[in-house]
Design a protein around this nucleic acid. Sequence first.
DNA 1: CTGAAAGCGCTTACAG
DNA 2: CTGAAAGCGCTTACAG
Lengths: 344, 344
Amino acid sequence: MASGGRPTSKDVAQEAGVSQSTVSLVLGGKWEGRVSPATARCVRDAAARLGYRPNLAARNLRLGMTRTVLLMVPTLTAPFFGPVYTGAARVAARHGFGVVVSTWPDDAVRSADSPFAAPDEAIDGILASSVAVEALGEFRDTPAVMLDSGPADGAPCGPVPTVDFGVADGMAAIAAHLAALGHLRYGHVAAGVDQWTFRARADALAAAVSALPGGHLTRATCAIEVASARDAAGRLLDAPDPPTVLVCDDDLIAAGAYKAARARGLDIPADLSVTGFDDVLLATALEPELTTVRLPAEELGAQGMALLLDLLSGGSPEPRVLPGELVVRDSTAPPARRNRNRPT
Amino acid sequence: MASGGRPTSKDVAQEAGVSQSTVSLVLGGKWEGRVSPATARCVRDAAARLGYRPNLAARNLRLGMTRTVLLMVPTLTAPFFGPVYTGAARVAARHGFGVVVSTWPDDAVRSADSPFAAPDEAIDGILASSVAVEALGEFRDTPAVMLDSGPADGAPCGPVPTVDFGVADGMAAIAAHLAALGHLRYGHVAAGVDQWTFRARADALAAAVSALPGGHLTRATCAIEVASARDAAGRLLDAPDPPTVLVCDDDLIAAGAYKAARARGLDIPADLSVTGFDDVLLATALEPELTTVRLPAEELGAQGMALLLDLLSGGSPEPRVLPGELVVRDSTAPPARRNRNRPT
DNA sequence: CTGAAAGCGCTTACAG
DNA sequence: CTGAAAGCGCTTACAG
């Protein structure tokens, strides 16, 4: 082997007494019918002996691809996206792909200096999670899979494969659970973000409540942030004839709803029921623990990457929907009997 | 430009009417004294006109480096590590480096199939956050920077640059805040994880309490997880003559302490004060909002990457310490007057 | 069934 | 001050 550095395919060839081509064929898995089994085994042994690992830069250069995909997310600091990344990276690694992350629209990761300072790493494909289709922007021509962006939001240039959560079903499950408990007056603390996933939640809740005899729904909008959610929930709670349950678009919003309730002396769930969405860590850290819908975030990343890899190798993968799962905990109970709005 | 693909340095050379070498020199920033300013400007214009971006694979191959660094963390799903990644990736991107993430010891991201299936991406350096030095393992010879692992935990093979939080000072600030409030009986709900950062917290708290006339400290150990923390806090609270404050090693542990307190009818902060550590999102989602120490996680990643980049370019960076900041919120108050342990 | 050769796009001595 | 040429480690026609 060349003194010092890692072994190359040439070293393996020499060790095995064959040519570089043969090594490449064998280790690339394209040898059958072209190299004798004995030679193949011999090459593999030599590679193992030397601890050979192919040089990705060389292969990428030769193949004209980078084996790198871009994961585009709104933010990495929200608890939801860590698992998405993990799932995507796990599947990617299994196929020799790396994952780089970019945030959109607030792109803190890439920079805009000279080409050399920010070499806009060439990528083979894009996984865009929970972002509008415009996020693809300059990457319009790059193979992409949209995650959590809704089946309708296909890119202008033909259908883009999608993986979505069954958020409508999830919200319907929450509504059914609440209806079974006897709730009629619903407050929806909605994320004020124009994304498919939130529109779908709103529509599903509205549909369920209007199908409920005597059902009534009010709505307040907020940022996905505790203080803003607390204020929005407060507005709902301070209205005449307030809701007996606050259905929140996100676990973090539910945390804000808890605060609004407590500030008004309302016990959860005795005086007020609250539900979340996502089932992040926070859901069990709250008190009482939050009834919510679990969204399999890591699975979203994993399946999305699987679809993208399929797309990159010429397939035309079908859209998928990942069901959410209702997790009933301690924040929901039957509505109180008219003793609302008087501090205990 | 070659039909189809992105423009190459050869295309730029042709557009500018110079050779490939000149293009490389100019765009690589090594032209001064070797290329006339007029030519340099001409090259840059051509590059801009064509939208040229260098092919990283080719450059990496030529240079024998990958411009990729590995970020090693215990887990990506804990709320703390998202920001660490973001900070590291931001600085890396500014220098044309990518960041791949690996978890240790539970390595879900890399796989162990054939060399081709998991091509163990060659890397130039490692950023290891909150892991033991053994985590470096097979990468013993790779330039590395240790984050949040303590100044003493240098690798066997000479000193490794470090970036740490001032956790001892942070814990001392908590203790001083609590002492000023009048607390004498301290319960430490400690993370049962053998890491420098937690040892430092324990030592600092022990030192502060023992320096306090009449001060008394008990300790219970738990996993960094709500249920485990709740149980540990419960043990402390159920002891005879229980603490008036629970000092928790982590915000998540504090969430567990809240549960233990509430289960015993103890009001926070009237009956019991609680403090956390980290200041993640959860701290303000809890009720009452948590007094804690803010650890600048994103800054840790950013500074660590800056040190690693310095190291990679031949420097010998000095270790750094990032101070934590005491954030006083609503979970701490003077101790109650002997009315403890009777449910309200 | 196997090998010699070209070439991916860069950077860097080296020659002028 | 500028250019021609080599070579990084791969993969893939192509020739045998």
